[in-house]
């Protein structure tokens, strides 16, 4: 009957298990799939990520040279990162912060990648 009691008393004298979250933040593990980003200046705007995304949350527009992800529809699977031919997509370890309003992650390319100008110009 007092089986739990022993454990409970033992816990009084051991270190607390709680992570005091806002005061101490734990380092995220490496390779954790967090926020999705794009090194836009290296992007060739091929649209592979848009085609592969299971959630259809990425929009690549070649004419206005924009790459946009809807972080509120993204399912953080990392498929786009694997399929990117120039490896300019990456996922940061920290998670995306909550917000009161939906803000799209929209990136405009100013100057395309130096080498493969053909892909960016068209």
């Amino acid at each position: 009957m007092f089986d739990m009691t022993r454990t409970i008393i033992a816990n009084f004298f051991s270190k607390a298990h709680t992570r005091l979250y806002p005061l101490q933040t734990r380092e995220p593990f490496p390779n954790v799939r967090g926020n999705l980003f794009n090194n836009i200046e290296e992007c060739i705007l091929c649209g592979m990520c848009q085609k592969r995304c299971p959630s259809q949350c990425i929009t690549v527009d070649k004419e206005s040279q924009t790459w946009q992800v809807d972080p509120y529809a993204c399912v953080y699977c990392g498929v786009c990162v694997e399929h990117c031919p120039v490896h300019c997509l990456f996922m940061e370890s920290p998670y995306r912060k909550p917000a009161a309003e939906k803000v799209m992650n929209r990136l405009v390319q100013v100057q395309g990648p130096a080498k493969k100008t053909k892909g960016a110009a068209q």
Binding site: T25, P71, C74, Y76, C77, Y95, R96, P98, K102
Partner: peptide
């Protein structure tokens, strides 16, 4: 709005 799939407890 809390994004994530699933959202982390910290978030």
């Amino acid at each position: 709005y809390v994004p994530g799939c699933p959202a982390k407890p910290e978030a």
